[in-house]
Design a protein around this nucleic acid. Structure first.
Length: 318
RNA sequence: CGCGGGGUGGAGCAGUCUGGCAGCUCGUGUGGCUCAUAACCACAAGGUCGGCGGUUCAAAUCCGCCCCCCGCAA
């Protein structure tokens, strides 16, 4: 309890945007840390405002949503006189002047086992790569992107059923727990700083909608991993040529049917009936589509989709 | 006013350009066939064609306004 008294006086700035950041912020609030201000991305969409913003509003915490981290913002941060900055999936690269402002430095919660998967999409890329484990790293930030010294790290198993949504949830919980443990130990100077091995580093890019495009000459397993990595956003899609128009087909729910033998029944991308669902041939297996959505239409069970579009069967997706 | 697609029995769609009986597939119900079935055959029920207004002898269809859903872009 005396620890809480000590830590509650710390002036903390929290920076984050995604759902993961929201979970972290919530746990900080629950632990009664003194959050003097929250920084989050400007609202891009009226419907989808930042999770962090909502939480901060509910707890009446001061909110900043700067577009650019320029000199004005830097002096704003300095005026807040933070002892510590916590960053989790903020989506902006922090200038050195901000990172160095707090006496206790700036801590970052990163959703991978650094130095693996540095960058903005660690969870997606772990799934894309078909990894069987990943984790969370608490890092003391420096100027580079996810290159700072490691303070704490914990592994988590990825199950074959995991997708972006389920794995993010697990990682958020783990990240919040690890951060809370780490903060108090960091304040007491009980954490060792471990340098990252840059030679083992891998860097991932920001995910865009177009990254969800399926290429039917890719291995079926990779297509399935892409589905897991991009579920529910941005989702995976392909194109169906109907009446000389390319219609975008989103695959909302799919299953993977591995095919051990090397023979293949159809050419790659060919659509055929597979029980109640639709099967699409890919190298090394079949993608079984259970729920699909044509552009401008609602997501439909494959069975219903075929009723209205019998010519979908037998077509070759592009 | 960012670009585009769409709203038609319970589900999915066609019909709209060129106005003229409300159609198709599936499902549902009844009957038949069958040792039997999610199969097959026959019949039936089920619609304010998103809403309001206009044009017309006549509007799902043409014109105007509005509502809602979705894809893309941001």
């Amino acid at each position: 309890m005396f620890e809480n008294k000590k830590t509650s006086k710390l002036r903390i700035i929290f920076m984050g945007t995604s759902a993961l950041a929201g979970v972290i912020l919530k746990s900080l609030i629950k632990e009664k840390y003194n959050i003097v201000s929250v920084f989050t991305q400007p609202d891009r969409d009226k419907k989808k405002e930042s999770a962090v913003k909502k939480i901060a509003e509910a707890h009446k915490i001061n909110i900043n949503q700067p577009e650019k981290l320029d000199e004005t913002v830097i002096s704003l941060v300095k005026n807040l006189k933070p002892d510590l900055i916590i960053v989790a999936a903020y989506g902006k690269i922090l200038p050195k002047k901000i990172i160095e402002t707090p006496g206790l430095g700036s801590l970052n919660v990163h959703a991978s086992l650094l130095p693996k998967f540095r960058g903005p999409s660690p969870i997606q890329n772990a799934l894309l790569a078909g990894e069987e484990k990943t984790g969370v790293t608490i890092m003391l930030m420096d100027e580079g992107i996810d290159t700072g010294d490691i303070l704490a790290q914990e592994e988590i198993k990825i199950s074959p059923e995991d997708n972006l949504k389920t794995l993010s949830k697990k990682i958020s919980t783990l990240g919040a727990k690890l951060l809370i443990e780490s903060i108090s130990r960091w304040i007491e100077r009980k954490l060792k700083r471990i340098k990252q091995d840059d030679f083992k580093a891998t860097v991932c890019q920001l995910i865009e909608r177009n990254d969800g495009r399926i290429f039917w000459n890719e291995k079926a397993e990779n297509i399935y991993n892409k589905f897991r990595a991009f579920y529910p956003w941005p989702g995976i899609f392909s194109f169906w040529e109907k009446d000389n128009f390319l219609k975008r087909i989103k695959f909302c729910e799919i299953k993977l049917k591995k095919n051990d033998s090397h023979e293949r029944a159809y050419s790659y991308g060919k659509v055929f009936k597979s029980g109640e669902a639709i099967g699409i041939q890919a190298p090394g297996g079949i993608i079984v589509a259970e729920i699909i959505q044509m552009e401008g239409k609602k997501p439909l069970p494959a069975k219903d989709f075929i009723i209205g579009h019998p010519d979908f069967i037998g077509s070759v997706l592009k």
